[in-house]
Write a protein that binds this DNA or RNA. Structure first.
Lengths: 248, 248
DNA sequence: TCATGTGAACATGTTCACAGCT
DNA sequence: AGCTGTGAACATGTTCACATGA
């Protein structure tokens, strides 16, 4: 985990694949690890300056990429990449590779990346403000739909063009604004009540930056990003490295 | 599965380019997943208001905790917790549980949490500034030792009490300040050169917030936190949820 | 009695190697 | 010839169940 993934953080089971319309799609469940990598492939494929000679561009209009090329660009093993793509029902062409545009289309379909998702930020401190202004969010199909806090000092102020609203109003604001994803950037002690408010507002997908665990009903997906934990894993690496390299 | 109580992170999860573990510690090599959870246990054990009646506190001065209690507080499986602790060479007492203070001491030892680590931030934009002021960093044995950027507009300005310095000076600044961990919060395009500068400055542990992969020499550990990727995995969840529950 | 520590079953994820298709 | 798709081996991680020992 990434494992990122700490204390059971972001490890998980396969999830039912979106089962779209067109004839040939067998809806196997897509493993979580594969979903994460599909997002990476999509970024590489759609990045204009992805790889030196615009990825897989041949002279004619058709862009084709081999698993070896794309794997190198994404930093993964080619066989694993082919396995990942096989979950798309994708048809690469043997001896040739994958049609880039088709690939983009198919990955976008299963990831829901042709939708636009609106996100609510709860807890507008340092981190919340940074995320509100973070280009990486708006840039890839996600937009900030609302900012919430419980601090009366903050409510009403404007950050990144949005007025901070009372978390107590989430239940009205989120449905009205079409918000489906919540991001918690509160201090640790406020995270659970933030989650409760989001769940009450009909949110089923939460990204939690607060340390500690939050409890949510079944069916609500929580992904955790624990910055202190990432540092601690690096500290472990430093400790091992020094202990191992220097005298023992 | 509901992450968090159920976590890719980052790990899980994500596609971090890291050198294979050259198992280093005196006893057994500690699995990465276990390291992440040990950090979580440590947080729970040292949190003053961790669990209802201060964790495992009996009337006398000795605090004892069972795997079941601690596992519940940390949101993990008790058997897995016991296996994790077995890597410490820890000796719980059968029929009783674990001595809390001993446990804290042992986890701190393997994580290097009794050291203080100094961190350099590279790329002082929105996110970098937020992290510079983030309490969660200084709070757990990590301190910001330097801020770097390449933008002459930013160099010399002060953020969170530290003057932003030229990344070109990293090679002198990092050793002088005792910095051993680097955090990259640059835009995507600048991440590789940021990593190069850190490596040249003698840094072996890097936390990378920029999307895309960075290439580092063997022996340098890179952990990646990809915010857009986390959102995309939630978007996949939303897509599956909606497609699965609503009419098809 | 009761909770630890761990063998063994299970689940997930990664990589190899090659058959099979274009 | 060359690259995909996938069975099978391998690696890692999780959970069960119970023998063991305080």
């Amino acid at each position: 985990m990434t494992r990122q993934a700490g204390g059971e953080n972001n490890a998980g089971s396969a999830v039912a694949a979106a089962a779209p319309d067109l004839g040939r799609t067998r809806s196997r469940a897509i493993p979580e690890a594969t979903v994460g990598r599909l997002a990476v492939y999509l970024r590489v494929l759609t990045d204009p300056q992805a790889v030196r000679p615009a990825l897989g561009d041949r002279g004619d209009g058709v862009r084709v990429v081999s698993s070896a090329e794309l794997a190198a660009a994404a930093g993964v093993n080619p066989a694993g990449l082919r396995r990942d793509l096989s979950f798309l029902g994708s048809h690469g062409v043997r001896g040739v590779g994958y049609d880039v545009d088709t690939l983009i289309e198919q990955i976008q379909r299963v990831l829901g990346a042709h939708h636009h998702f609106r996100v609510a930020l709860v807890g507008i401190g340092n981190l919340g403000q940074a995320l509100a202004g973070y280009a990486g969010f708006g840039g890839r199909g996600f937009g900030i739909g609302a900012l919430f806090d419980v601090d009366v000092e903050k409510i009403g102020r404007t950050v990144a063009g949005l007025r901070i609203r009372d978390l107590a109003d989430a239940q009205e604001v989120c449905p009205a604004e079409g918000i489906t994803i919540g991001v918690i950037t509160t201090p640790e002690g406020a995270a659970q009540s933030a989650a409760d408010a989001l769940v009450t507002a009909g949110i089923f997908s939460i990204l939690n930056f607060a340390p500690g665990k939050i409890v949510v009903p079944a069916g609500v997906e929580v992904r955790r990003v624990d910055l202190a934990l990432e540092l601690q894993m690096l500290a472990f690496h430093e400790t091992s490295r020094v202990d191992g390299v220097v005298a023992r």
